[in-house]
Amino acid sequence: MKTILLILTLFLPFAAQATDVEQIIEKANLASYYAGNDGRADVRMTIYDAKGGTRERQFTVLRLNSRNANQKFYVYFREPADVRKMAYLVWKKVGGDDDRWLWLPALNLKKRIAPGDKRTSFVGSDFLYEDISGRGPDEDNHQLVSENNDSWMIKNSPKDPDSVEFSYYMVWIDKQTYLPLKAEYYDKSDKLYRRVSAVKIETIDGYPTVLEAVAEDLNSGSKTVNSFSRVKYDIGLKKRIFTERFLRRPPREVRQ
């Protein structure tokens, strides 16, 4: 009996810490991707390549939380001109492949997109598909490395290393808002090659919100700045908006 108690006491601090880390990660996931029941934002994405060239995308995102942490997204493109009026519909399924469709207005065509590697670029930027829609907390092992008064620093190692390009990433999570302030990605030779940072955070409708985020590719020297504006939460988005009807006819919520 004594031995069992001893073993328990030995493991207790680790167990408690593990729970804490999982809780932090879970709360950070909720704060980053699930604020409110629904939300909208206008996004201006500026891609700076290493040679000084820039490209710009502008789109509006609608998001609706559904059951079991699943979500629906509607992305309506405004710029550049060649993708104007295209719409992108995602039914995100946690733990499975997302259902995705692209609306091509010139052809009046709802094209279904085969599930893709979530760690490929989103619309040619330095942000990855997974940065936009969220990486499942269960896909990594989490370890609290250090903390100070303001933030926790957590190391995340993939459970399936072959499925991703990083060997691990460090994330700094704000103790007040639970928003990730910075994530740094290390490659298989332990070299830092990618950084995503939240550079401007404000509270909107009661939810701490990232209003500017930067993704940097330290190998190529390119970076992408995402600026969010006209952010609103709990605007009463209906499920039916995330269907073909509103691909054909963009809903009022995406119009300016």
């Binding site: 085969a114 599930p115 893709g116 590697d117 760690r119 490929t120």
Partner: peptide, 12 residues
Amino acid sequence: FERELLPELTAG
């Protein structure tokens, strides 16, 4: 049938 073979490479 369509699927992604590799990142940024799709076959149908």
